[in-house]
Structure formats: C-alpha cells, structure tokens
Design a protein around this nucleic acid. Sequence first.
DNA 1: TTGAAAGCGTTACCAG
DNA 2: CTGGTAACGCTTTCAA
Lengths: 342, 342
Amino acid sequence: MRVTREDVAREASVSTATVSYVLNNTHHLSEETRSRVMKAVEKLGYKPDMIAKSMATNKTHQLAIVMDSLLNPYYGEIAIGFENAAVQEGYFINICSGQNNLDAYFDSFIGRRLDGILLLALPDKFHIENLYRLINSGVKIIMSDIDDIDVSRVSMLDNNYYEGMKLAFEHLYNLGHREIVYLDVMQAQPGYQKVNYREKAFFECRKKYLADSNKDNIVSFSQAGLNHIEKGFNAAQRLIASGRTFTAVICTNDLVAIGAINAFTDAGISVPRDVSVVGFDNIVYGKSWEPAITSVYHDKMEFGKKAFDILNNNINNNITGFYKADVMLYKGASTAPPPARK
Amino acid sequence: MRVTREDVAREASVSTATVSYVLNNTHHLSEETRSRVMKAVEKLGYKPDMIAKSMATNKTHQLAIVMDSLLNPYYGEIAIGFENAAVQEGYFINICSGQNNLDAYFDSFIGRRLDGILLLALPDKFHIENLYRLINSGVKIIMSDIDDIDVSRVSMLDNNYYEGMKLAFEHLYNLGHREIVYLDVMQAQPGYQKVNYREKAFFECRKKYLADSNKDNIVSFSQAGLNHIEKGFNAAQRLIASGRTFTAVICTNDLVAIGAINAFTDAGISVPRDVSVVGFDNIVYGKSWEPAITSVYHDKMEFGKKAFDILNNNINNNITGFYKADVMLYKGASTAPPPARK
DNA sequence: TTGAAAGCGTTACCAG
DNA sequence: CTGGTAACGCTTTCAA
C-alpha cells in the first residue's frame, strides 16, 4: 500500500541507498542517476516516511509549543510566528493547549522524541523536576519567566514584562495617578510554583513612587472554570466592593482588563473618565475594544520567530540562547488623567 | 543514553518480548514476571519509544487539528474539546495554524503517518485532490462544510450554520426588521473553492421573507493581512458608504460583528438602537462585548469531543460517522426592534 | 559513483 | 507462560 524507498529504487534500477543520497543531497551522484531517481519518485508519488527517518537519524524534526491558553490570542500570535519559521526549516509543529496539567505532557514529549519545546506556560502548571527530566532526555527547551535554572542547558525568552510593568506604572504616574491597583488573576495550583515578575515590578514601583507604599493594593482573584475576562470582571467587582479608593488599575493582561472595564461600566464607573485601565499583551482584540485598551506589549510574531531561531540553534549546535523582547506601551483610550479632586 | 526495552529486559531477566507483553497487556503472564518487569521499568525510568512503536504497529497515535485561525477563540474552544478527549485515549495532538496554504501540510501528514485529521479549515485553503490523496494514504478525516464528497470515506461534522442563519434571520424578522444585510469577509484565493452555506441560507430567507427579494444585500469585504475584526470594520464602512438603507446586519462571525459595531459606533450609528447586529459562534469575547453580541452558536467543546469520538471510531473500526450540532441563538444586547419609521 | 548490510526500538508471529 | 526473531522504512558506514 505505502510506496517505500525500495519501490523507488526498483523503478529507477538503483539501490535504496542511492535513493537516499538523491533525496537528502548527501552524496555526489551522476546527473543521470539523480534524474532517473527523481523521475521514479515523481511517478510513484513517493513521500519519505518521517517515522522511519526519525528512527534512523534519532531526530524527529518535530517541535511542540506548550500554550498557556488556546483562547488568548496573545499565545496564538506567538505560535504563528514560531510556526511560520519552523515550517520553513522542515519542522512539524505540535501544539498542546494549556488546559490540563502539563506533567503528563512532558512524559509524552520524551516518548515522542520531540526535538524541542517552546514552553509558553509558567511553572504553575508543571513540576520543575519533570522539566529537568525532559532536558536530561535530550529535548531542547526554550522558555521564559523562571528563576534558578541552568541557562547553559535551557534557552531563555524574556518577554520583559518586568520592565513593562514599570512602563505602565510610570505612564499612569505621569498622568497624575497616585492610587494605582494591580489586578492579578493568576494562581498556582497547590503544590505548584508561582512566579510573577510583574507583581515584583509593581512592588518596586509602588515603593519608589507612592507615598503610602505599604498599602495593600494588589487584588487577586481566581476561580477554576472562569476565563480571564470573567476573572477580570470578578476581580474588579471585588475591588469596587472593597471600598478602597483608586484612580487606576493595571491588569495582568488585556482579557482581564476587558473584564475589569465591563465591571466598572456596570457599576457606573466610566473608563477612562473615572478610572484608567492598563492591560498587557496588546492583543488584537484589545485595540478594537471600546475604549481601546492601553497596553504593554512586544512584537509577538517576532517573539515567536526568535524563539524558533534560538531553539533551532540549540538543537543543531547544542548552544542555548537568550532573547529579550523590546517592550513598548500602546497608548489607547482607556487611560487619562485622574478625575480632579473635590 | 536512552533507556530501551532491552535494558529493562536485562534488568528483569526476561526477554524483550516479555517486556512488551507486560507493558501492552497483550498476553497473560505470571504475576511474578509482571511485577519484576514493572519494577525494572520503574527503576530505570523507562519510557516506551513511540517512534519505534509507530514503526512496528503502523499507527502513530498522533492526530492533527487543522485550524482556520489561531486567533479566533471559536476554533480554540473546539480544539480544547477535541484534545481533552483525544489525550485520554493516548493520542498526541498536533495543531496546524491555518495561516499558510494547507496543501503543503497535507503532504507532511502523509509523511508523518498521522492516524487522523480534524479539518476545521474550508476548501478555500486547500485543493480537494490533495485531500483525496491524504485519504488514499489511509489518513482518516473528519471535516465539515463540503459538497460532493464520498461520505463512506470521510466523516462529516455539521455545525449546522445553515439552519443557524435561518435562526438569525427569523430573529431579526420577528423583531420587525425588513432590511437585512449579510456581511461576509470570507474569500477564497484564486484557484480555490469557496463554500458558504450561510450565504445560501441567507438567500433562501431573503426570498421567503423579504419583499424586494432581488435586492443586492450581501456585502463582501476581504483584504489580505487584516484580521476578522478589521475586515468587519471595513465591510461595515463600505456598507455605510454605499448609502443603501438597512436596519440590521448579520455578520459571518462574532469577530466581524465586533468590527462592524465599531464602524457603526464611529459613524454615529448606535447599536442596537439604529442598527441590530447578529454574529456567529458566540465566542467567549462576544458575550463580554458592549453590547453583548447576539449570536448563532453551538456547544463548541461538545463539538470537539464528538469530532474526536467519530474520528477515533473511524481509525479503529474503519467506519465513518456524521455529527450534526444543535444550533442555538444567544440573544445578547446587539439586537432590538428597528427604529420607528418617520 | 554506487551498493550491501547493520542498526534504530518496537511488535507480533511462531516455537517451545 | 515465555523467548527468539523477522519486520517496519530509512540512514550511513564500509567496501567495491
């Protein structure tokens, strides 16, 4: 049923080895032989079997992108950038939704002999020791936002949202805001590690700029089964209900910002007149929101492309790499000077 | 470096065959042997090599989801439903963004020996003959929205948006709308086939309900490089500029509806006061839009799960299947009775 | 410049 | 109940 290289060899009256040489351009052959083989390939519609090839070469030319969410277009855009670059180099891409616990995936990555992984999910969804087991099995990794990891073995991808948080904070500060709240909805499952550079950056900014720097102005809200918009909505409602005063909120991403804006609007709080809102990621929908969401961002396509380049280099030359995204601020219509004090 | 079945066999003092029997539960073995093998597996941290397994069994346990877009959460939700079900059955999932031409992917599906494909993209992105070549190579397919295909060889997935269009139309008609426009942004590349059941359903409804049934009330707009929100925005602007009268628009999906609403708002046309807008898919963001978008939809998670069940049955028992989604109408705030005539 | 054959890690048939 | 071994489709070393 399947056309094999042997069929091609027979058709072209050469050996199977010769067919390989032609297809992989790995030997010098007479033009005559080469064309005879190509003709046979064409005629039989032969497609090399990558499984067998993987078996022989110990490379699968298969990479996985581990998403944090298939519903947030932020990751989608990165994935597109990554995939475009990877396909060009003959890789096959595998995308794992971040719905489930990732530990089980890690095992299958070893079994599937993946050449490399773009790990977009944070360690709040997997155990570090499983990551190391993956690395020890020869799977190359590129990931971001993790401390205490041996960078000689793992490539790093810095989205630079630590600096981004400062950008957001300073933007608000310069507009005149002095009561700024950070809305976070990330939460690690029990037993998992939470890393959040944005929170750290927020603390720093608060200390530097705000007088009452000890004020508890981070609102966290997370509930299983809710999407980020809903979590943002709930977090903002909780903030409103708390009675604390604020003139601006920074949201952990644009989806959360959208939810928050909805909650404010529902409560009769106008954005940006009464409250300014900043998001992260500058997702494709954030710009079209009403009001367009002011957002910290980087070039997501480029980010994906860079991720691939580094990973590919890691795979081929066993050299880990590092990338730091240029972080920028998109000034939408969701931020404005705070309302005048009465 | 890699722990193989042979290492396990040596450790447990059995043959490699026995290890297979234990791991695959395919023979009856003495409890003693079984536990000795398991202990060795555990001790060595052995992970079966799926590549070699595929080689021997001629099954990869690998499926692909061909997305139409990684940026539309509609597909994301379907993918999640599909993946959840598939992972449970030991499959590995591969997601291809619909960014690029799909014909090249089809070739690699053969080379990668994929067991099956969930094809979410329409034939405006690939050539039918390549689909057939895929089928002939033994790859099972489940897909929707295509005419003239041999259903004994391909499983079908009906999202029932043909009926959905009627639902949308009747909803508007019952509200009192008599000037309804359909906003479409899909466009096949030259040389590719365009199928659009919604358009057909729209024609039918128009004929049945509207007096001036010959009126040209479909606005198409498509431009490479724009996302669906932008296309919807442009299409609506074009509609406004055309000067034709209308009280309601049906948009080909929610993203287009969002873009259209933005264009209307920008032009001082209030939704739903002046114009009603209906979308399709009821994506997670549509509900949170202001106004919440009235939308035709089905259960997307369930859709993905059903898709997997049918595909899996196709793979294991060589029986194609058919699924018809229950289509519903989410009544948001973007539709209302038309403004009173002056 | 070309070919023969070993090897990659499994499975599954056939013996014992 | 257990083991030996051919087979899967390809690459690659070694020899001719």
